[in-house]
Every structure is written in C-alpha cells, then in structure tokens.
C-alpha cells in the first residue's frame, strides 16, 4: 500500500492503494466517486472513460499509481457547481441520448474529448470517435445527434426526435 494523490475535478484527494489498484477502482472504491462505471474487463466498452491530464483514458486499464499527481476529470465534475448541466450533458438530455444511463459517463467524457480537438465533427467522425464506447440501449442514433448538436450544428434534419 502506498498513498496516491490526485486532483479530481479540481480537488486534491488521497488514499492508500495497492500496486494493482486500477484508476477506476480508486475512484469508485477509495474515493467513493461511483459515477465512473465499469462495464467490461477487456478495455472495450468505455463506460470507465475519464480524463487524465486532459486526455481521455479508460480508467479500468490504467493503474491508480500511474495517475499519482495527475489531474483527473470525471463525470461528477462536468456540471456547474449549482448542478447546471454543461452543453454536452444538456444536449444528451435534449436529444434523449441516454436510456439506462450506464454507458453515459463514458460517452460524455469521450465526446468531450472529441469536441476539444474537433469542435464541429461530422457524423462519421463522431461515430469513429466512439469506437471504444459501447451503448446497448440507444442504437447510437441520439448519442451521435446529441454530440453534433452540442457542437452547435443543426441536427433538425436528422430523422426523428
């Protein structure tokens, strides 16, 4: 066990971790931040995506100790302090981009990563960027639509609300 310290959503947090403690475990179990989900064990579903030093990573495939000293951003830190959803979160609600909500944290964090580098992605670019995020509920239609809408694009011509 050794102490791991990271800045999570702007707040410094510490806890003891083993070598094998994954970042996802550290967030969920050590820090009690259960917004980050774990949906697989082969690094494919993307429910666990968080940002480490500004880069989207799969927190189930990164050791907590590798994030020692890093700035970590999770789903819990996306809304404003008064609870107001950010543009991307609001677009997901407006366009029904989630159903059961389990993949949603990873979807939001991956989409945020995309919009940072590509502020007006095409449909194909959105779909390609979500290669590592699996949703079983939505058939992706409204997720793709929400992300394009969040980027300020007119999505009214895309079939169905």
């Amino acid at each position: 066990m050794s102490q791991v310290t990271m800045t999570v959503n702007g707040k410094e947090m510490s806890s003891d971790a083993e070598g094998r403690t994954l970042l996802s475990q550290f967030l969920r179990e050590n820090l009690g931040m259960t917004g980050t989900h774990v949906g697989c064990d082969t690094s494919q579903c993307g429910a666990c995506v968080v940002h480490v030093d500004g880069v989207a990573v799969k927190s189930c495939t990164m050791l907590a100790m590798e994030a020692d000293g890093a700035a970590v951003s999770t789903i819990e830190g996306q809304a404003a302090d008064d609870g107001t959803l950010n543009t991307l979160q609001q677009a997901f609600q407006d366009h029904h981009g989630l159903q059961c909500g389990f993949c949603t944290p990873g979807m939001i964090m991956s989409a945020a990563d995309l919009l940072k580098t590509n502020p007006k992605p095409s449909e194909a670019e959105v779909r390609h960027h979500l290669e590592g995020n699996i949703c079983r509920c939505t058939g992706y239609h409204n997720i793709v639509k929400a992300i394009m809408a969040a980027s300020g694009q007119d999505v009214s011509s895309i079939a169905a609300e």
Binding site: T42, R127, H128, L130, E131, N133, I134, I143
Partner: peptide, 19 residues
Amino acid sequence: ASYMDYAMPRASDLPFYGV
C-alpha cells in the same frame, strides 16, 4: 466469451434510422 470475440454493434456499424 468476451468483447474480443463477441461483436457488439458500435456507433460506426449503424446508421441514423428513419422512424
């Protein structure tokens, strides 16, 4: 027996649907 061999549909496999 895992997502390495069980092919889940991803965003890039699917179109926008007309409903």
